Amino acid sequence: MSDSFFTPHHMCSFDLETTGPNPRTARIVTSSCLDIDLPESSSTGVEPHLVTHNWLADPGCDIPAEATAVHGISTEQARREGSPHAKVVKETVAHLYTAWEEGRTLIVYNASFDLTILQHWEPTFEVRGLVLDPYVVDRALDKYRKGKRTLGIVCEHYQVSLDNAHNSDADAWSAAQLATRLADVYPQLLTTPADDLMALQTEWHRERQQSLREYLERVRRDSHSVETEWPLLGPLVQH
């Protein structure tokens, strides 16, 4: 990766909707990969070439009501219309590998969640190319801005549209637009070699999470769920 760079003109944006919030146990309900291309010489207003790949999975278990309330997919719909969970995992991983082989930057908002889920169900999964995580970048480069950093709130801050939130392809598209906007605001993202950009994001995330852990410990609150790894979570360690 050392000679490559992030370019908003050649991306694959990825998002999952799942059965729950724990990336080590959650199963996939929907998976979306958006391949996005835009000629570098294009003038403002030229529409990108967008190819969308969507999967609906039967997770092999009941989808909790609270998860259905977020993404709108019921157990009955997933069983009736979904592909086997293992097949969706395999095809999603294969598509990410192809995207990296094509030199695409993988855009994933809160990458350690989505990518850890893939590795949990496909233990051989590995990161083979550049990942840009707008969640990590925004928290690091605008660290003193107050408020939550959910996808919706961050999109609003950068004036990026987010329609049909918690639909995986809609979230993936908004994350891609957000990555492009971040590159406008922070042009160093375009000139930092891929290996260095990966290392920076890893360190930014570790520092931010370690600071959060120390704060929680100071105020005598539970910090065991604060994890510092990126873009894949390691074994769960009790603190």
Rank of each mutant, 00 (worst) to 15 (best):
M1T: 01
S2T: 09
T7I: 02
T7M: 07
S13A: 15
F14P: 02
T18S: 09
G20F: 10
P21S: 13
N22S: 11
N22C: 10
A26R: 03
T30E: 01
D35L: 15
I36N: 04
E40C: 11
S41F: 10
G45V: 12
H49Q: 14
H49S: 15
N54L: 13
P59F: 04
G60Q: 12
C61P: 07
D62R: 14
E66T: 11
A67H: 00
T75A: 09
A78E: 03
A86Y: 10
A86H: 15
K87N: 11
V88M: 03
V93N: 01
T98Q: 13
W100M: 04
G103L: 12
V108I: 03
A111S: 06
S112I: 05
F113H: 09
D114N: 05
L115I: 13
H120A: 09
H120E: 11
W121P: 04
E122S: 14
P123I: 01
R128W: 09
L132W: 00
D133S: 07
D133F: 07
P134M: 08
V136I: 08
R139K: 15
R139V: 02
A140W: 01
A140D: 03
D142V: 02
D142F: 06
R149E: 04
C155V: 07
E156R: 15
E156C: 07
Y158Q: 04
Q159L: 10
D169V: 04
D171S: 08
W173Q: 06
W173N: 02
A175M: 07
A176R: 03
L182P: 03
A183H: 00
V185E: 14
Q188M: 10
Q188I: 09
L190K: 11
A194C: 08
A199K: 09
A199Q: 12
T202N: 01
L212Q: 14
R218Y: 12
D222I: 06
T228R: 11
E229S: 11
G234N: 11
H239N: 14
